[in-house]
Simulated assay, not measured.
Amino acid sequence: MLRPDYPIETARLTLRPFAAHDLDALYAYQRLPEVARYLYNDPRDRAATADVLARRRAVTTLERAGDILVLAVVVRESGALAGEVNLGWISEQHRQGEFGFVFDPAHHGRGYAREAAVEMLALGFDGLGLHRIVGRCDGRNTASARLMAGLGLRREAHFVRNELVKGEWTDEVVFAMLAEEWAARPRV
Rank of each mutant, 00 (worst) to 15 (best):
L2N: 02
R3M: 05
Y6T: 07
P7N: 10
I8G: 00
I8L: 11
E9W: 01
E9Q: 04
T10P: 01
R12M: 08
L13Q: 03
L13K: 00
T14A: 01
T14C: 03
T14G: 00
P17N: 06
F18W: 06
A19D: 15
A19P: 04
A20T: 02
H21E: 15
D24Y: 06
D24H: 09
A25L: 04
L26T: 01
Y27G: 03
A28M: 06
Y29E: 03
R31G: 00
R31I: 00
R31V: 00
A36R: 02
R37I: 05
R44V: 10
D45R: 10
T49G: 03
T49I: 05
A50S: 08
A50N: 00
V52M: 09
V52C: 09
R57F: 03
V59S: 04
L62I: 02
A65D: 03
G66I: 03
G66E: 09
V70D: 02
L71F: 08
L71P: 01
A72Q: 06
A72H: 09
A72R: 06
V74M: 10
R76M: 11
S78I: 00
A80P: 11
A80W: 09
N86P: 01
N86H: 08
W89H: 07
W89G: 01
W89N: 04
S91P: 04
E98A: 14
F99L: 10
G100E: 06
V102G: 05
H107F: 13
H107A: 06
H108F: 11
G111T: 13
G111D: 12
A113D: 09
A113M: 08
A113R: 04
R114G: 12
A116Q: 09
A117K: 00
A117L: 06
A117E: 07
V118Q: 10
E119W: 09
M120K: 06
L123C: 07
D126Q: 15
D126N: 14
D126T: 15
G127R: 12
G127A: 15
G129N: 08
H131D: 11
R132K: 08
R132F: 03
I133K: 00
I133A: 06
D138N: 14
D138T: 04
G139Q: 12
G139S: 15
G139V: 09
N141C: 14
N141M: 11
A143H: 12
S144K: 04
A145Y: 08
A145K: 08
R146E: 14
L147T: 09
M148C: 04
A149N: 04
L151S: 05
L151G: 03
R154A: 13
R154N: 06
R154I: 15
E156Y: 10
E156T: 13
V160D: 13
N162D: 12
E163C: 12
V165M: 15
V165S: 11
G167H: 14
W169V: 11
E172K: 13
V173Y: 05
V173L: 13
V174G: 07
V174I: 14
V174D: 06
M177I: 09
L178V: 12
L178N: 02
A179R: 05
E181M: 04
A183D: 11
R185Y: 14
P186I: 02
P186R: 05
R187V: 11
